[in-house]
Design a protein around this nucleic acid. Structure first.
Lengths: 183, 183
DNA sequence: AGCAGCATGTAAGTGGTTACATGATTGT
DNA sequence: ACAATCATGTAACCACTTACATGCTGCT
């Protein structure tokens, strides 16, 4: 009962779309799940080895040149469905930015403004990226609606952050003005 | 150069509002930073010991009954400002829910609906909590605007999640209907 | 007498990142 | 020839959680 299940899920999920090398699994994950999931090689290769030992994936030759291509097995597909159905661990809610902002009165002058501007710019940039993805021609396969849902999540999140950052910047400006007025 | 800096920051931040025991530090963190930060005892006590060794906090007696009360020192206050000014580590963007939804086509029937409903209900509950906090009488100290900012962040986030969940549930319903019509 | 809450701490384990080591192939 | 990219893996480390162990105090 290895508890590496989240990485296992991501790797099996990637492999469910086609056979590939470990290196390509990484690329597939950063490419398609990138805005809400990442994996490092130090995690992928050991996981792949474990999956192979459990018969959930198998290696297809792969000559000297390319690495060995990994393929999901039927047992692997069953396991993927199991993992998907399992309750998901809630992400640890830890926001280092908010931690700093909460104690904002002790922040060096201008730093709060800087932090908020970074959030605003980051969110706007993310939104641009998302709209570029939306513009991409879609081969309409059955998974499409779910993929769109995750994209939509990113958009909602980015818009919320952008709006919050703008509101907070305005509040900050009011604060500064009041301070100046009082002397 | 210990790298426990995030926990250190949270603990020093809590202690900057007044002297307290380790147990109370935990309570203060879950109470006031709870919706974007948490610490466990296994983290707090060793951190406190390290801070004491560095002269950033000091212990005030604390008889047999209550535990020893910990107080931030001047050096501790300086360190707090340093930590606050440091660039914040970006949280690992890993969303186990989206990971499952992305591969939604392999999810057991009804499970996607279940997941989205949970998100919607959780967000609504969070919003209620936040509005209760807003209603609390505020002693208007200088930190107030920053505290409000972090609360506002939670609200924006919760609204975004709620709206996304509702939209996605509607999209899911459309999908089911289309399936029935064709099937 | 017994339980709930206050209080402090340690040990083991988890899930992950980073850095390192290595080497083949392809393109310039 | 050299650099970039593909490819695989390990070792060390890190932050953190959970579970455990312990004991006191105050209330019922």
């Amino acid at each position: 009962m290895a508890r590496r299940s989240q990485t296992e899920l991501a790797v099996l999920g990637a492999l469910s779309t086609g056979a590939m090398t470990g290196y390509e699994v990484r690329a597939a994950i950063t490419g398609t799940l990138g805005h809400f999931w990442q994996e490092s090689f130090g995690q992928i290769y050991p996981t792949l080895a474990g999956l192979e030992a459990d018969g959930l994936v198998r290696r297809r030759g792969g000559g000297r040149t390319s690495g060995s291509v990994v393929e999901i097995t039927d047992a692997g597909r069953v396991r993927l469905r199991e993992l998907l159905a399992e309750p998901h661990p809630s992400a640890p809610r830890r926001n280092a930015l908010l931690l700093r902002l909460f104690f904002g009165e002790h922040l060096p002058p201008g730093r709060a403004h800087e932090l908020l501007t970074e959030v605003e710019e980051g969110s706007v940039a993310a939104l641009e990226q998302y709209s570029a993805i939306r513009a991409e021609p879609s081969d309409d396969d059955p998974g499409q609606p779910f993929r769109t849902m995750t994209l939509s999540f990113g958009e909602h999140l980015a818009r919320a952050q952008r709006d919050w950052a703008r509101e907070s910047l305005a509040a900050l400006a009011d604060l500064e003005e009041g301070r100046r007025a009082r002397g």
